[in-house]
Design a protein around this nucleic acid. Structure first.
Length: 450
RNA sequence: GCGAUCAUAGUUCAAUGGUAGAACACUGGGUUGUGGUCCCAGUUACGAGGGUUCGAUUCCCUCUGAUCGCCCCA
């Protein structure tokens, strides 16, 4: 061994990345359980697609005018010399899977949900990370406006249920038939008002005029008020569709906000678009989720038949941030009802056996078998908030008993080893968290025959 | 990608051109048999690199990261 001090190398998180420590786990568990529950109730099946895809998948789908793909995507050449990308969003992968596996041969529409990491190489900021998690719902293979409405309702209900005050902003941006007419008109209008546009907005006007509607420039506000609105340019089909979406939303008692400025940042949207926005605007990143119809994307990505689709996705980190900021309680993990404390070499062995016995009986048992010192162990039991400590020391080994200590009042009772399971059963009948769900498996170890 | 502010133990904060303190947390102890209070002790930090200086945690530069705003978006 060298005595030369090795230089201490310290490692740190990559920019925009985040560790999720146990302290935050309950929020993640809570949300993912909610998502799974929603999916089950509304008939969505889970789909998990890879984080890595051909880069061209996103270039073709999300579009050359979207920053998400052109500026923010993690693209690189893999060791096999293939251009690959870390997914910046979920929809293209799901669509790819649908086409590739011929899911058009299943009863339509096909309903998917997913939850997983997305990557965007953007400058991190409040509520914005380079790796973030989205859950999303997609319905592929049906053009009915009732699906748009149902998805909007799901997002609405999801946030209502977790007590976050949100509003839904809805718009329709038309289809490949009517949108060009609108874009032309809007471009004309914006060009006429060019002197009111800031530098950023002039750039947008060239690249993607629709996005100018999203501008936060207060000077532009009065101009945008006068701007032509996409809903006034919809073709008959898009108009009928949108009217029905709104009718269904009324029927579903979903309160929404008609917002002609919701245009979304991805190129594939058509007809309905919407965003889920926190009502208590914090100024920064207040969009919790968004979605829209993408009737033309499947075809763009190689589907043989025209296949309409619609979906939305929400940000998990942002949702958790808002839950915490609003002090919204989420369930904590169930606590153990029992704690095994041991003192001495033989007792340690027997404690191990007792743990296994009780665990296989379905009890949730805590321990610090690696510790010595009874004091330390009871301290730990106290911190864990267990109802009973089961103590095994030298005396208990000799007598073949276990000492049951009530942690609330300090009362202790010695119980024969053979009776320990029924004795605990008596005491914990009233306990809420102590008994786990019954399991089918046999005990891992045979009960000690004594 | 642009701009501003910032960077000291696990956490929240101090102090200082002569290498750093506290609180909480953690570990151990207060005669290997008793927790929720108390007492004692201990571990742990100047983000990285370079420059100025006799000497840098302190001043300067670069990098890295964080926060906030813009862009964009979840």
């Amino acid at each position: 061994m060298s005595s030369v001090k090795a230089k201490k190398q310290s490692y740190q998180l990559l920019r925009g990345m985040k560790d999720i420590l146990p302290e935050e786990e309950r929020y993640w568990r809570f949300l993912s359980e909610r998502v799974v529950d929603f999916a089950r109730r509304f008939g969505y099946s889970r789909i998990d697609t890879p984080v890595l895809e051909q880069a061209s998948l996103y270039l073709r789908s999300s579009g050359p005018s979207s920053d998400v793909v052109t500026k923010e995507m993690y693209v690189f050449t893999d060791p096999g010399n293939e251009r690959v990308a870390l997914r910046p969003e979920g929809t293209p992968g799901v669509v790819r899977a649908y086409i590739e596996h011929g899911l058009l041969n299943q009863p339509q529409p096909v309903k998917f949900f997913y939850m997983g990491p997305m990557f965007r190489h953007d400058r991190p900021q409040a509520g914005r990370f380079r790796q973030h998690t989205q859950f999303g719902f997609e319905v592929i293979g049906d053009q009915s406006p009732i699906l748009d409405a149902q998805l909007i309702m799901m997002g609405y209900r999801f946030y209502k249920d977790i007590n976050l005050a949100i509003q839904i902003d809805v718009n329709s941006i038309g289809c490949s038939v009517c949108r060009p007419r609108y874009v032309k008109k809007l471009t004309q209008f914006l060009t006429d008002n060019k002197k009111s546009l800031g530098l950023d907005d002039q750039e947008r006007l060239k690249k993607n005029p629709l996005r100018v509607l999203d501008s936060k420039d207060p000077n532009l506000e009065p101009v945008l008020q006068q701007a032509p609105q996409s809903v006034d340019f919809l073709c008959d089909e898009c108009k009928d569709h949108f009217v029905l979406v709104l009718e269904y939303l009324d029927e579903l008692d979903v309160t929404y906000n008609l917002n002609p400025r919701i245009v979304r940042g991805l190129d594939y949207y058509s007809k309905t678009t919407w965003e889920i926005i926190e009502t208590a605007r914090t100024g920064g990143q207040d969009s919790l989720g968004g979605g829209g119809r993408y009737d033309e994307l499947l075809h763009t990505l190689g589907a043989r038949a025209k296949t309409p689709a619609v979906g939305f996705a929400c940000g998990v980190e942002r949702t958790i941030t808002r839950l915490r900021a609003n002090d919204i309680a989420v369930p904590t993990l169930p606590k153990a009802g029992l704690y095994i404390a041991q003192l001495g070499k033989e007792a340690k062995k027997k404690a191990l056996r007792l743990f296994t016995l009780l665990d296989s009986e379905g009890y949730h048992v805590a321990e610090n078998l690696s510790k010595d010192g009874l004091k330390t162990q009871l301290e730990s039991a106290d911190r864990l908030g267990v109802k009973y400590a089961l103590i095994i020391g030298q005396q208990e080994i000799v007598d073949n008993t276990v000492l049951i200590r009530d942690m609330e009042n300090g009362n202790q009772e010695t119980v024969d080893w053979a009776k320990i399971v029924p004795e605990i059963g008596k005491r914990l009948e009233k306990g809420v968290n102590s008994k786990r769900l019954e399991r089918q498996q046999p005990p891992l170890l045979p009960v000690q025959p004594q």
